[in-house]
Nucleic acid binder design. Sequence first.
DNA 1: GTCTATAATTAGATAGAC
DNA 2: GTCTATCTAATTATAGAC
Lengths: 210, 210
Amino acid sequence: MAKTKTRERVPRSSADPTRDRILAAAVDLFSERSFDAAATREIAARAGVTQPLLNYHYRSKDELWRAAVDSLFDLLERSMNDRVAEIGDGDELTAAKQRVREFITFSARNPQLHRLITQECKADSDRMDYLVERHVRPLYDRTVALFERLARDGAVPPVAPSHLYYILTGAGPTMFVLAPECRRLSGLDPESSEVIDAHADAVCLLLFGR
Amino acid sequence: MAKTKTRERVPRSSADPTRDRILAAAVDLFSERSFDAAATREIAARAGVTQPLLNYHYRSKDELWRAAVDSLFDLLERSMNDRVAEIGDGDELTAAKQRVREFITFSARNPQLHRLITQECKADSDRMDYLVERHVRPLYDRTVALFERLARDGAVPPVAPSHLYYILTGAGPTMFVLAPECRRLSGLDPESSEVIDAHADAVCLLLFGR
DNA sequence: GTCTATAATTAGATAGAC
DNA sequence: GTCTATCTAATTATAGAC
């Protein structure tokens, strides 16, 4: 595998370090607990501020949640774009494999994204609405279109693309979403590059045959 | 937090219909929300009783959660055993495929199980302890041992069994854990036998080559 | 911008009637 | 066994000092 340069996770600096610390704490706690179970007091404490300050920077807990979600998907999009820019032009299969690898690497380094999705998409709600229509659907549409082309070329097994989508988004991130469980069950460290690369290798082998 | 040491809880048909209704409501709400976000008042309402009655039947919210978890894993174990009994003796590959199919079918009909696991295994806690040591580890150990034998025979791609475990437990249930999202994104109905079978086919194709 | 103090609501658990 | 009434603690949001 080609040596990739380390991509820092620098959330777009909003020129306000306090806002950024609050946002980072919100991402962590909303994804680890859930919207209702994440107390604003605890988010504030992790950000090193007092609880009422959250209501100064964000109108409500709900608005803070939306800002947290936006920042996470923004980070994903920039990571994927960086990787796409790196590979330049090659055949579609090679590009697809690179996208899958980047997706898995991102999910390993930012398990919050899939934790948030599984948190909110188990039942219909306003938050699921926001998440799906604003962020997930564009990704789903692009991924399904890609799998359709790959299946036509025989580059991927003959499986309906929606199933491939849930196979990829399940098989890729689950080991990292459940990192604490994985550590205890297997003794592996899901944060290490070795394990991340091995998992990306495994998923690509299953999906693309190599 | 005092650790209750209750012995011999039998979550099967407990001959007490009220207890059973409470337990079913608890399974649904704990898995859909999370431990903290699931209000005992709401569990009671769904079971058609008043909130203080939960504390009559179960010492605390925590004990109710444990009983709910036990009943879910009990159901899984009985479903897997029934399927194993059906196939009787054949080669190990055929048996393995049957186990995978049954696991996926069960996950589709009872998405609460993986919802609960992803809920609680994102961070270390007493509940994760209970879940992993009491219920998940035995399943993990058996699954990893099976994948090890299959990989030796070349029946499964040459991938470390812990990775295969998280690929299977991710790729199998995710479509059903996120059923409301899947319905909206794809238009498919993840509760229909057609979709369930198609997903089981897809995962088996990826995992076993057919 | 960030704090302290507090209001309004809701949580899980208990007491006691029936 | 199931209810009503209620206690205590914790929740988000607001008011107002600095």
